[in-house]
């Protein structure tokens, strides 16, 4: 049985989604970079960006490496997968969930909605 991450996509807060989105754009960013962009759009603390990036890392949605800098060390974050792959995984997950919950009704609906026209 293939094990897909249950919480994938679901349970991501709006700020987490925004951070992930930014990482796909930039491909690589420090906590500071993301904070600098997001603080212009909304009221947000530097520490909460650090916390959320750590959570995304724990959920294996982002990767990080350690880089030396003037102050000592810092994290450089990057997305763990391409945006498209991630979206596909989220979609697959949601569809699977629907089928699990609604069974035949769901599959019948998918046939009706997306079924090949004969």
């Amino acid at each position: 049985m293939k094990k897909s991450p249950q919480k994938l996509g679901s349970g991501l807060g709006p700020l987490e989604k925004e951070i992930l989105e930014l990482l796909w754009q930039k491909q690589q960013a420090k906590v500071r970079d993301i904070y600098d962009v997001l603080k212009k759009k909304r009221k947000v603390a530097h520490t909460s960006i650090a916390v959320l990036l750590d959570r995304l890392h724990e959920r294996k949605l982002v990767k990080r490496s350690i880089e030396t800098c003037r102050g000592g060390y810092r994290y450089v974050y990057s997305p763990a997968s391409e945006k498209e792959d991630y979206q596909k995984a989220v979609l697959r997950n949601s569809v699977d969930n629907l089928i699990e919950r609604f069974g035949n009704i769901a599959t019948a609906y998918f046939d009706e909605r997306f079924g090949k026209k004969r």
Binding site: H46, T47, D54, G71, G72, Y73, R74, Y75
Partner: peptide, 10 residues
């Protein structure tokens, strides 16, 4: 931790 090195000013 990396966290404290990153968070604090010199």
């Amino acid at each position: 931790t990396m966290g404290i090195v990153e968070l604090l000013k010199p």
